[in-house]
Design a protein around this nucleic acid. Structure first.
Lengths: 221, 221
DNA sequence: AAAAGTCTGTTGTATTTACAACGAAAGCAG
DNA sequence: CTGCTTTCGTTGTAAATACAACAGACTTTT
């Protein structure tokens, strides 16, 4: 378990907690370790989850098969990332997705009830952990809501403008850089890359914005 | 404050807590009450939020104006609903949206630090509150992720199939009813209603599914 | 420096979607 | 029952998108 303390120290969940304290908390949280071979399913649709998980080593895909058997990859989990935080509500249905190891992987399991129930005196960092958990989920929530606000725009143009508008606000400048290349931006907004490139060119021709690589500038009309 | 206890008892956040205990907790949480006139802004883009809010009376719109001034309504808040839970992360930027009262409204403010920091002994229901908060956000998270998984499908047909597929899974039957009428479903999936109706008819003609009003049945191929 | 590979913008075409309009069916009120 | 309103499916047309293909710019490798 000790070998994971350094990794955990850098995760959002254990942020602000020292390695020694993490070690004692791991015990308090009844932490389990499981390894998965490449291709192995960590969870299947329909299972109940009672833990919060952090991927220590490897890579996982959150994916879904529809009624007619079509596969759809929803998300890729990388080391240090937490997952399962949306599926531990009691009496509220089962996992809707499959979780598959696409590399040999190691997953840490934390008992959710031990996280949320403060043990009377043992863990001075328990309150910190709860705050971290809350902040992490809250932050994810915020990202999801924003993403939906872009995706719910009907046209590629509107999706681009709402995203770029928000980035300008967030970075507090009408000139800013984005953390995506074109393909990643297209995937993020759920549009076709070439159609998006085309639309960006139109917007530039119309004088609404300018860009070089990942640097964008919004113009007044 | 007493007059709000009955309302709060029915909210997700205070679920499982009796009215008398809610009253003592309201004090412990340093609850503030603010009223807004119709049309008044409760919050503006760029502000910092340090509280969790529950709407007691009225109706609010979460909305956004882009760089060029176009208005966009993201969400409508009704009495008993919590909001702001995604915007109270310390040091992580400001509010990206405006919150406007579209009717005369009353909002309750709860100090977020007092919720997350367990007061040594005073509140026996504090742990319950933390769990409720976690479950609420977690549940919202889950809904958001699912919605994104539908919206990220490229065509109306795929959006429909992924949503209906999930509902069949969730209700554990290939026959099920949905909580939307056609317009609401179209809004939820971010597609045009008439195009969606058209696509549903095609799917029925192709023998993939059947429907009468809000009752759907998925067919094997 | 040459070669191989990646990223981006552009174009043409087939497909899909948005929009407006309308009639039938269902639900509701007087 | 009658008239009014809402919901739903259908259709035609204009607009937008997906897809495939390709060329130039830029990177990385050899």
């Amino acid at each position: 378990m000790k070998k994971y303390a350094a990794l955990l120290k850098r995760t959002k969940l254990f942020s602000g907690v020292g390695e020694n304290d993490i070690l004692s908390m791991l015990h308090c949280l009844n932490t389990q370790v499981r390894e998965y071979n490449k291709g192995e399913y960590a969870f299947r649709q329909g299972e109940y989850i009672r833990s919060l998980m952090i991927l220590a080593v490897g890579r996982l895909h959150i994916q879904k098969e529809d009624y007619w058997g079509n596969l759809n990859i929803l998300n890729e989990i990388r080391p240090g990332e937490m997952f399962g935080e949306a599926y531990i509500i009691p009496n509220s249905g089962t996992l809707m997705n499959d979780v598959v190891a696409i590399e040999e992987s190691v997953v840490l399991f934390f008992d959710i009830d031990r996280i949320l129930t403060v043990c009377s005196s043992a863990c001075p960092f328990h309150t910190q952990l709860i705050k971290n958990l809350f902040y992490t989920i809250s932050d994810k929530n915020k990202s999801l809501v924003q993403k939906i606000s872009y995706m719910s725009q009907r046209s590629t143009r509107e999706k681009l403008l709402s995203y770029l508008s928000d980035e300008a606000k967030r970075q507090n400048s009408n000139s800013f850089s984005i953390p995506f290349n074109r393909q990643q931006l297209a995937d993020f907004l759920s549009v076709d890359r070439s159609a998006m490139s085309n639309e960006l060119s139109k917007l530039r021709n119309e004088g609404m914005l300018d860009f070089h690589k990942n640097e964008f500038t919004l113009r007044e009309l």
